[in-house]
């Protein structure tokens, strides 16, 4: 069940890479610009997560997601399409500004929606190399930022920004001691993040690619890969279909509707 809580705000799953900013006000400005360029008030998508173990064996998860802002609340509904044994499982998240989310889960065998809470940002997301922290909207104030240098990555001139959790508690929650992000100086798109474990060793490397423009000058990624540098496992998140905007009514984003849409 916790793996589902990880997907609370998948639509902003790559925002975290923009949360790093250069030192001082400049860093925060970079971060804000990075967040803005992928911020959408509503969207729908179908995404596939492939989880590879050390031997290359693969497991596949496929989910559909819809998100839309109603008033001050961004509501997101996510539903498993595959594999078959979890098909129909759904999750609903109300993301509020300034307070913790409301979350519900619906499992077909349970035949009713159930309110849940989640507090484990460092846990694996759906059994993959991604963590819940990777998939949820970060709080900029949780981190200290430092501009390390500028570096060319695949021909792109990037800021190389280090973000460190402000407290030991935040380190534990997020599951890393620091992360280094590579953010395009021209358009603020993030292409790579290196995560370091609590002992300071490089643990995972994330690459984000296949950005495509959507409406209003915004972008959205279609491919995200996380390589575990210590175990040899990797996970690949592919956006199969994406739609900026959504014509779904608010009633669909309700706990009562989770049951109907099984």
């Amino acid at each position: 069940m916790k793996r589902l809580t990880a997907i609370t705000v998948l639509i902003v799953s790559c925002i975290f890479c923009f949360s790093a900013s250069s030192s001082g006000q400049d860093a925060r400005e970079v971060s804000k610009n990075s967040a803005d360029i992928i911020a959408l008030s509503s969207m729908e998508m179908v995404t596939t997560l492939k989880i590879y173990d050390q031997k290359g064996n693969v497991r596949t998860r496929k989910v559909s997601i819809a998100s839309k802002k109603f008033g001050e609340v961004t509501k997101m509904i996510m539903r498993f399409i595959d594999p078959a044994d979890v098909r129909g499982t759904a999750m609903l998240v109300y993301d509020y500004e300034g307070k913790s989310d409301d979350m519900w889960i619906y499992m077909p065998a349970l035949k009713k929606s159930r309110r849940i809470v989640s507090n484990e940002k460092g846990k694996n997301f759906m059994g993959s190399e991604f963590t819940n922290a990777d998939m949820s909207k970060p709080n900029l104030d949780d981190f200290n930022y430092k501009l390390l240098s500028t570096e060319t990555l695949n021909g792109k001139n990037c800021f190389k920004i280090e973000a460190t959790p402000k407290t030991k508690e935040l380190e534990g929650e997020n599951g890393f001691s620091k992360k280094i992000s590579y953010i395009d100086k021209g358009n603020y798109l993030c292409y790579k993040i290196e995560f370091y474990d609590l002992s300071g060793k490089l643990s995972k490397t994330q690459s984000i690619s296949d950005y495509k423009p959507v409406s209003g000058g915004k972008f959205f990624y279609y491919l995200m890969e996380m390589n575990n540098e210590q175990t040899g496992r990797k996970s690949v998140l592919t956006t199969d279909a994406f739609q900026a905007g959504s014509n779904l009514s608010e009633s669909l984003f309700s706990p009562a509707n989770l049951e109907k849409q099984q």
């Binding site: 729908e44 998508m45 179908v46 559909s64 997601i65 819809a66 509904i77 539903r79 399409i81 595959d82 078959a84 098909r87 592919t238 199969d240 279909a241 994406f242 739609q243 905007g245 959504s246 014509n247 779904l248 669909l252 849409q261």
Partner: peptide, 24 residues
């Protein structure tokens, strides 16, 4: 996947989310 994207581009008024439920 390509087919889904094409359908999405040509029929943007449809709901990707609700249609995907019937695509298992």
């Amino acid at each position: 996947t390509i087919l889904a994207i094409l359908i999405l581009n040509t029929l943007s008024a449809q709901s990707l989310f609700t249609d995907s439920q019937k695509d298992s």
